[in-house]
Structures are given as C-alpha cells and as structure tokens.
Simulated assay, not measured.
Amino acid sequence: MTLAPDRPVAVPVSPCARPRRVVIGFALAVGLLGLSVAASLLVGTREIAPGTVWNALFSPDRTLTDHTVILDLRVPRTAVGLLAGLALGLAGALMQGVTRNPIADPGLLGVNAGASLFVVAGIAWFGVTSSLGYVWFAFAGAAVAATIVYLIGSLGREGATPVKLALAGTALTAAFTSLITIVLLADTEAFDRYRFWAAGSLVARGLDAALPLAPFILVGLVLAIVAARMLNALALGDDLARGLGQNLITARIVCAVAIVLLCGSATAMAGPIVFVGLAVPHVARWITGPDYRLIIAFSALFGPTLLVLADVLGRLIAQPGEIEAGLVVAFLGAPVLIALVRRVKLAGL
C-alpha cells in the first residue's frame, strides 16, 4: 500500500484567538496612550526631571519656573492633542464605515478643507480669534463640505461609490483651497493669524481653547458609540442592512452629525490635521477585525496616541526649534495612504 504524499494540514484557528488578541491589543493601546502622555509632559526644549514634573502636577508651586512650564505649556498642549486626536480618530472610523471607503479621511474627503474655508472667512470678515469662535464656522464648513461631496458622489446609476466620493472630495479640497488662498491674499492680517493655525499645531493652544470644545467632542463620542452597531449593518451592503431592519437614513444622519461635530471641533482646536483619521481605523481593524464596536473603541485610543506622539517627535527632531504635529503626521501618513491604495480591498471593511 502506498501512502499519499504529505500535504499541509490546515490548522483551525482557536475561537479564543480573536478575543485574546483584542484584550492584548487593548492593554497595549492603553499603555501606549499613557506613555505618549508621559513623553509629552517630559520632553521639550527645557529639560525637566521626572520628579519635578510629578510635583508640578500634584503639588504645584507657581513660583518655580519648571512648574509654570509644565502647567501652562505642556499640560495644555497635551490636552489639546488628546482631544483633537480622539476626535480625528473617531471621525475617520465613522467616515470609512458609512462610506465603505478604505481611504476615507476628513482631510481626503474635503471636510477639513470646508471647515478651514469657513474659519478663514470668520477670521477675515468677522474678526474671530478664539477657538470657541472658530468652532461654529468649522461646524458649518464641515457640514457644507460633507453634503456637497456626498451629493456629487451620489450622482449616477451606482450611487455614492468609494471612488466617486474620493474624487469628489479631492476636487472640493482643491476648489476650497483656492478660495482660501484668494481670501488670504486680500487680507495680510488674516493670513498672519491663519498660517500658524493651518499648520496643525498643538503649540500655544491653552486649556481655554480645549475645554470649551470638549463637550462637542463628548457628544460626538456618544454618537459614534451609538453608530457602531449601525455601521456593522451598513458594512453588509444597503440591501442586507434593510433586510436586518436597519434604517439607512437614520444611520447616515447619526454618523454625519457625529463627523461634523468631531471634525469641526478638532479643526477649530488644532487646525486641519490630515491622515490621523486615515491610519488609525486601519490599525484598529487589524487588531479587532470588522466589528465597528471594537474599531470605534480602539480608534478612540490610537487617535490621541498618534497625534501626541507626533507632537513629541516634532519637538525632538528639530531642536532647539520644533516641527508642527500636523506636518509630522502628514509625513508619516503619506506612506500609509500609498500602501492602502495599493493593497486594501473594499471587502475588507
């Protein structure tokens, strides 16, 4: 009797593998977030010992210069990074889910450009100078841009396909960027105020800029959690989602409101930062699989971690100066975008 040649045997994946991976990933995500916060408080042009940082946080003495640096400079910029990163990470996850587009991002679909255009209008024509003033213009601009992109992308027989949405977002971004340039060239004072904000910086953003916008981000977070189960249904396609009893209009409205709140708040707070919303959901999806309840949770951790670490890296690579966090994220995000365009399949969403 002859024996059949050896063949590779398929080893079934343990049903516990995914939960174990999620638990380990969650622990690592929380640990990375904590390390990023610690690094943001410790690293800067002024060297401050860890013990001094601890004392500044828990027994501050305003007569000490090091304590003042920690409390007035590093704590506020860390808070802004956490809030803006949270908002952008969640917004990216929601946009990729609701459009079923693997390269959806507030920057790539024109939402940031719309918010920026309206903020420029507020600066140039209404003399707005505060983050709380910016946010209302940012909300309006984000909503207008999202509506225009969706309407243009919906034209034609196939409806709002990922490719059409991406093309519409790119075209709208180009148009809005041109309008921004026209407004700024006509108003040098507005240009001086805008250029620093537009770089996507966490510098010179105090708690007075972050705390008034925190409630909007909190509402966006709650809506994102509510939308997670809806996105799981939408990922199956419109027909199957309807068959499961999902109201598509309600789902998209909830996601749209959350995206506008999150993108508008982040843009008003830290400027038009791109690629955070693109990369973060894919990292989360690699750990969690396609369940948007977990993707939303992990995006809420990875978003602030990425932005705060980008800010820390910007302080280190250009001493004694620093590079804005938005520029560092853009530099890191470009290879991610190229890799996604080449490798990610829509079915993977």
Rank of each mutant, 00 (worst) to 15 (best):
I295D: 09
A268M: 03
R293G: 10
P304Q: 14
D311M: 05
S299N: 15
G314L: 04
L294Q: 08
P281T: 11
I273A: 14
F275S: 05
V283I: 13
D311I: 11
L316F: 15
V274K: 07
L313M: 13
A297I: 00
A266P: 12
S299H: 14
G264C: 04
R293N: 05
G289E: 05
A325H: 01
A325P: 08
Q319R: 04
Q319N: 03
A325M: 11
Q319L: 10
V280C: 08
E324Q: 14
A318G: 12
L309A: 13
L301S: 15
C263F: 01
D311R: 12
D291R: 10
A284T: 03
V312S: 09
R293W: 04
A284D: 10
A284M: 08
A279I: 02
A268P: 11
L278N: 15
I317H: 15
A318H: 09
H282L: 04
S265K: 03
V274Y: 15
V312K: 15
I287T: 01
A279D: 00
A300C: 15
V280F: 04
W286F: 06
D291V: 05
L306D: 01
R285Q: 12
V308G: 03
M269W: 08
P320F: 11
T267M: 10
A268N: 03
I317S: 11
E324C: 07
I296K: 12
D311L: 10
V283G: 11
L316W: 06
I295A: 08
I295R: 13
G314Q: 00
L313H: 12
T305D: 07
E322M: 00
